[in-house]
């Protein structure tokens, strides 16, 4: 484990805790994309199926996998719960969440069938999850750019998530040079994902420069 990887994982962890804390303390779901959060559940469930096999990596690895599955499910449950407790806010959230995720799902499935390490169920689903993760934030970014305003904590969330992916890139350089390890699918999808976030940073700077409503990350 190198520092880039550790800080990458920590910022990923932080992004999730920020989101949960935001929903719970402010008691608001405004500006959150239900679709993006639903995609993360699917991503973690399809990627970490190896928890069911005997490919144990480390205690750290297992705990983190369980955390990501559990916390993504918890977020979806929190959002779903507002359907009963705050029907108007829930309806507004769903109405604003207009991105067509079927293209992301279909595209990721095609890419997973074309590019995988082995034509087996586990490897195809793993590949599907990395392709899907590379674009899963798009419904959230789409919502953000459409509304032109966002709660600063939503921005904190996206920023921490973008930071996580950005830190994984120097981690891969490190692993290539120090450990001789190179996972080409992880690297390619990771770069795609970071490019998607660069769009967020572009929108962010544009809004800030033109005096828009985005808060500082």
């Amino acid at each position: 484990m190198n520092l880039f990887r550790i800080f990458g994982d920590l910022s990923h962890l932080a992004s999730i805790l920020i989101l949960i804390r935001t929903i719970q303390t402010t008691d608001t779901i405004d500006g959150i994309s239900f679709k993006t959060q639903g995609l993360y559940v699917l991503i973690f469930l399809t990627r970490y199926l190896d928890l069911l096999t005997f490919s144990y990596v480390s205690f750290y690895n297992t705990i983190m996998k369980l955390f990501f599955i559990g916390s993504s499910l918890y977020i979806v449950i929190l959002l779903q719960r507002s359907r009963k407790t705050k029907p108007i806010a829930y309806k507004e959230m769903i109405m604003a969440d207009t991105f067509k995720v079927q293209y992301l799902l279909g595209g990721s499935l095609v890419m997973a069938l074309l590019f995988n390490y082995k034509f087996s169920l586990l490897e195809i689903l793993w590949s599907f999850s990395v392709w899907l993760e590379s674009v899963a934030i798009l419904p959230q970014l789409f919502m953000l750019s459409k509304s032109g305003k966002a709660k600063s904590l939503t921005i904190h969330y996206i920023f921490a998530l973008g930071l996580y992916r950005t830190l994984y890139i120097p981690n891969w350089f490190w692993r290539y040079w120090v450990e001789g390890k190179f996972d080409k699918l992880a690297v390619v999808t990771g770069i795609v994902q970071t490019l998607v976030y660069s769009d967020f940073f572009y929108v962010y700077y544009k809004k800030v420069l033109t005096g828009g409503g985005l808060g500082l990350p």
Binding site: R5, D9, H12, R47, D50, S55, V57, S58, N61, M64, K65, F68, Y117, K118, E123, W126, Y168, N171, K181, D183, A186
Partner: peptide
């Protein structure tokens, strides 16, 4: 290419 690398990242 060789067999699938172990997916030890998150």
């Amino acid at each position: 290419s060789t067999s699938a690398p172990s997916h030890d990242e998150l």
